[in-house]
Design a binder for these strands. Structure first.
Length: 271
DNA sequence: CTTGGACCTGTCACC
DNA sequence: GCCTACAGGTCCAAG
């Protein structure tokens, strides 16, 4: 039903551990306990992290006219879009900018170890993700010690914005409205905003256009020229074309294509 | 509105 | 071993 390891290692989620037959996912101040059927317990609230309500059959139907996606939904059966804690998602993708996945994981783990509360669950030690107030009140010099470089200022600024209520009620905003709100934060441009809109706000029409997807859209669909857009205007134009081509489940389509692109790359994945 | 660069840090092909 | 390019982009100053 749900491909838990496949989903957790698909580049949407960075803070999780595989212990025995379970996976433990750090999701803000919450820790989710997961088995191969989905979330089975949590330290605070059991959330619908794997979006079990999504109509997968209907998504398959919407991909019926697309040979590549039709093949990919079978090859990667059970790959899901996640529904993550907003603040952690914001910081995760600010950290992801101009970086790479192994390093993103290290940076986020360091942030938890330095600034998050320590706790235990099933006799296993964990560090939670820090709150907006804690990171907002931390000097950028100390945030920088987590190896995030110039992103430290963005992390601090975005934390302060969220602490002050910028994103309150974002779940009730339209895609464009929420995008505008998110992009007010330092370090959040169109691509990072799309990650947050898709992985935390439930906007399935959001398609994060990273280097991988831009390459795939050019090579397999003839959309765009394969180079990363440099302006928000160029990004928006490309995003509209991609969304129109992939349909109402464009966010899911993006995740399948991203997985394919990474699996096809020569270098072994470092998870 | 478009173009050109800089930017922390780590890893990894090529010299 | 040493040097360069590049990594799930964003921001800022000029043209």
């Amino acid at each position: 039903m749900i491909d838990v390891p496949g989903t957790l290692s698909s580049g949407q989620v960075f803070l999780w551990r595989h212990v025995g037959v379970f996976w433990y996912v750090i999701d803000g101040q919450n820790i989710l306990k997961v088995d191969d059927t989905g979330v089975i317990d949590a330290t605070r609230t059991i959330t619908d992290f794997f979006r079990c309500g999504d109509d997968i059959d209907r998504m398959h139907e919407s991909f019926a006219q697309d040979p590549l996606l039709t093949e990919l939904i079978h090859r990667y059966e059970g790959l899901r879009i996640t529904n993550q804690n907003l603040f952690q998602c914001v910081i995760s993708f600010i950290v992801s900018a101009n970086s790479n996945i192994p390093r993103i994981r290290r940076n986020l783990q360091d942030i938890c170890h330095r600034f998050g509360d320590k706790t235990a669950y099933d006799d296993i030690a964990f560090c939670l993700f820090p709150t907006p107030a804690v990171l907002a009140g931390t000097d950028t010099h100390h945030i920088r010690e987590c190896g995030v470089g110039y992103r430290a200022q963005h992390i601090q600024g975005a934390s302060a914005a969220i602490r002050d209520g910028l994103c309150d009620g974002i779940d009730r905003m339209s895609y464009k409205e929420a995008q505008g709100t998110l992009c007010e934060m330092p370090g959040v441009g169109r691509k990072v905003a799309d990650c947050i809109l898709l992985f935390s706000c439930g906007h399935l029409e959001a398609v994060p256009l990273d280097r991988w997807i831009i390459r795939v859209m050019h090579e397999h669909y003839g959309i765009g020229d394969g180079t990363t857009p440099h302006t928000t205007r160029q990004y928006d134009i490309l995003h509209d074309d991609v969304r129109d081509r992939l349909g109402p489940y464009a966010g899911y389509a993006q995740q399948y294509l991203f997985k394919m692109a990474r699996n096809n790359s020569e270098k072994p994945l470092k998870w």
